[in-house]
């Protein structure tokens, strides 16, 4: 090993393995399965705290016919509220599909890099498609 390094000058772009520093963050790209994993966490946290919005809406929608209509006006009548609801719907669908992939990987399957990459892409695509389908049906 030392012979090799002595005989040839070390290429400038040769990778070195060390902990990254804060200044590296802009250049650091999470691999696709890593992105799938972090979005699973983010959607999970968003849903847990999003329940603060969802539970009062459930209560409103069940209280009376007027309550149901008021809920529809608030959610469908306000573009921001609509966006938040579509976001939470996406979070549910994404978290569910990514969760199924996670359980399959826990059992020891789908672990090599190529498969892990392609199933991560499949999670992104299918969750967007299912969300779009529901939004389109309920519009």
């Amino acid at each position: 090993m030392s012979d090799v390094t002595k005989s040839k000058p070390r290429p400038v772009d040769m990778p070195t393995f060390r902990n990254i520093a804060v200044s590296d963050l802009a250049r650091y790209r999470l691999p696709l399965p890593g992105i799938a994993s972090i979005i699973h966490r983010i959607t999970g946290i968003a849903l847990f705290f999003g329940l603060i919005l969802l539970l009062p809406m459930l209560q409103m929608s069940l209280k009376s016919e007027a309550g149901f209509e008021a809920f529809r006006t608030i959610v469908w009548g306000n573009p921001l509220a609509k966006l938040v609801m579509i976001g939470l719907l996406f979070a549910i669908i994404y978290h569910l599909i990514a969760g199924i992939r996670h359980v399959i990987q826990d059992s020891g399957k789908w672990l090599d890099l190529q498969v892990s990459r392609s199933t991560a892409s499949a999670v992104f695509v299918s969750s967007v498609v299912v969300t779009a389908l529901i939004v389109w049906r309920l519009w």
């Binding site: 929608s61 069940l62 016919e65 149901f68 209509e69 549910i92 569910l96 969760g99 199924i100 299912v130 389908l133 529901i134 049906r137 309920l138």
Partner: peptide, 25 residues
């Protein structure tokens, strides 16, 4: 449990569309 419930709701919504207040309640 959550997955079964969510899937049931999704199927109901996709099949029947937006429910009326009476149907939902």
């Amino acid at each position: 449990i959550i997955a079964a419930y969510v899937l049931l709701l999704i199927v109901l919504l996709l099949v029947n569309g937006t429910p009326t207040a009476a149907q939902w309640q």
